[in-house]
Design a protein around this nucleic acid. Structure first.
Length: 577
DNA sequence: AAAAAAC
């Protein structure tokens, strides 16, 4: 068993059957009743330890054991041991994930810049060196964060010394806490405490690309803030409205927001940022892409206070974007954990050839009708495709299917996230909205139903699994149309130790392939249905899927492309293969 | 290179 685990991590001896076996061991416990045909069930005793992505649903992370083996017995104790062994091979058992373990080897960390402060190996070091408040330390312990991860050890001292920072660290390695801890420490007392140093108005801004991620960061922030009367605002239409009163917004300490929401408040003069001392960009490469950049620049310009500290964080930072980031930062330190643009080795990645779009659904259905490890997260390339795929899965009898994309209402999105947090979703079909930052620790498998549009997207998508030192599995479907970008993704697999069929590695240069691809037809807006039998009674179930109604409205507005006639239109793509 | 997401 041990030998196998090592081999499989190296990615050489990997084979499907063995992996399945291994994963069964992981879900473990005396597997008895099989609630959901073909689905490897979580057993009762396995649930609390394994699925603490419930932490948000319960309003706080369950307290974790301080040392191996205490107060956990039987099957779950065994599971813990496996986890801990995993962590020896990697430092990615992130504090962000409220997990802890024995001292472990770390990813290589490189820090470049002038006068780089030494890393803090323990949270206690932050107290002795920087007088970090006991409250924050206590809260960290309270939520099971006992030892800094690589990015935390290096990043926190840098930020506490008021330096600008560009931090690159893999998915699930605790980036959120690397900026929350120093920002909260630097703010000291809540602004409402009438400390004259505080000035008036919000003192820290954290920007994230999606509502869901902003929400998650807000939750983390509340954990650290417990016991103090900080005003930490998750910016939304509603909260922005409550801040229309200047006397109210003058007492806010931290705002966590998506860029556009903040820009709108700025433009309607409902917000001043002249007291902001810390500005953090999470998912920095996304925040600095052409779509978000103008908004972010507007926010940066509005932060007029002298000595504004800026920091950017991401798991990926392409050279072009990095130049933009570095141009923004003042005498920055650049910290890279592990290898840039490389996913975690704990994620077993594979590529599956599906010929063309119509072949995808049958392939996925066959996969989901065999035993698999829920919850599984499926990525599609567009909102209509996410909705229609979820719909097709329900029609074909797959249990506990959910859907989440930005075309859904705020409430639908929130409900979908909480079902996910509670473990009620077995199959979550989504778009890029879920690709970055979301920390659902229970996710066992990621399936790229539609090929990712960039290496960055691929890395972030598959990074939703394999968190907290657990194993994860990532399957990527590719069609003939995806060939031009296949090699780039295949290289990512190879770099992180997953096997790739030899013929893929021998593909010609992408540029040649691209030329061949010229004139290809665009991907269908809806996924291709598997078959049209037995639909009528199944159609009733469709309303269970959030976003369905909306999709139709949108479809109608856009010219009915994805409406009820999509099945007749299924032939449209025939010419594209 | 292109969609999604931000409202």
């Amino acid at each position: 068993m041990e030998a196998f685990r090592l081999l499989s991590r190296g990615g050489v001896q990997f084979d499907k059957g063995r992996f399945k076996n291994d994963v069964t061991l992981f879900t473990k416990g005396p597997t008895k009743q099989d609630k959901g045909k073909g689905v490897a069930q979580h057993t009762g005793d396995d649930l609390p330890a394994e699925l603490d992505f419930f932490k948000y649903a319960k309003g706080g992370a369950p307290k974790r054991k301080a040392a191996e083996g205490d107060e956990e017995g039987g099957a779950s104790g065994k599971k813990r041991r496996l986890d801990d062994e995993e962590s020896e091979a990697s430092e990615d058992e992130a504090a962000e994930d409220a997990d802890d373990g024995p001292p472990m080897p770390r990813h290589k960390v490189t820090a470049k810049g002038l006068n780089v402060p030494p890393p803090a190996e323990k949270f206690e070091d932050l107290k002795t060196r920087y007088d970090l408040s006991s409250l924050i330390l206590t809260n960290l312990g309270e939520y099971g964060y006992t030892r800094p991860t690589g990015i935390q050890a290096h990043g926190i001292p840098i930020l506490l010394e008021s330096r600008d920072l560009a931090a690159i660290s893999p998915t699930g390695t605790g980036k959120t806490l690397s900026y929350l801890i120093p920002v909260m420490a630097a703010l000291g007392a809540p602004i409402a405490s009438a400390n004259s140093q505080n000035g008036t108005g919000v003192r820290a801004i954290i920007l994230a690309p999606t509502r869901e991620l902003a929400h998650q960061i807000h939750n983390e922030c509340l954990k650290l803030a417990q016991g103090r009367k900080w005003r930490i605002v998750l910016f939304s239409k509603a909260t922005a409205a409550t801040l229309a009163d200047k006397s109210v917004r003058d007492k806010v300490d931290i705002i966590i927001s998506t860029p556009l929401r903040l820009v709108m408040s700025l433009q309607s003069s409902k917000l001043e940022l002249n007291n902001v001392r810390h500005l953090i960009l999470d998912e920095a490469d996304r925040m600095l892409d052409s779509e978000f950049l103008p908004q972010v620049e507007e926010i940066v310009a509005a932060c007029s206070r002298e000595g504004l500290q800026k920091a950017v964080f991401s798991a990926t930072l392409p050279a072009g974007v990095e130049r933009v980031a570095m141009g923004m930062l003042n005498n920055p330190i650049r910290v890279v954990v592990g290898l840039k643009d490389t996913p975690l080795p704990l994620i077993a990645q594979s590529l599956t050839y599906v010929a063309d779009d119509p072949s995808k659904l049958p392939t996925l259905l066959a996969y989901l009708k065999q035993p698999y490890n829920p919850p599984v997260l499926i990525f599609t390339s567009s909102q209509p495709r996410a909705t229609s795929l979820a719909e097709e899965l329900v029609i074909n009898g797959i249990p506990n299917v959910d859907c989440l994309h930005a075309g859904m209402s705020k409430k639908e999105r929130e409900d979908a996230v909480s079902r996910m947090r509670r473990g009620e979703s077995w199959v979550m079909v989504s778009t890029e909205v879920m690709a970055r930052g979301m920390d659902f620790k229970g996710i066992r498998e990621v399936i790229n139903y539609d090929f990712p549009q960039s290496v960055q997207s691929y890395i972030h998508r598959i990074g939703r699994t394999g968190r907290a030192g657990r194993e994860g599995k990532a399957i990527t479907y590719f069609t003939d149309e995806d060939a031009p970008y296949l090699k780039a993704i295949a290289n990512v697999l190879l770099q992180s130790g997953s096997p790739v069929p030899e013929w893929i590695t021998k593909l010609p240069k992408p540029s040649k392939m691209k030329r061949k691809q010229m004139g290809k037809v665009k991907r269908a807006e809806a996924v291709n249905p598997a078959r049209s039998i037995g639909r009528n009674e199944a159609i009733k179930k469709r309303d269970m899927i959030a976003g369905n109604k909306r999709r139709k409205e949108k479809g109608a507005k856009a010219g009915g492309v994805v409406g009820g006639d999509k099945r007749d239109g299924a032939g449209d793509e025939k010419g594209s293969e």
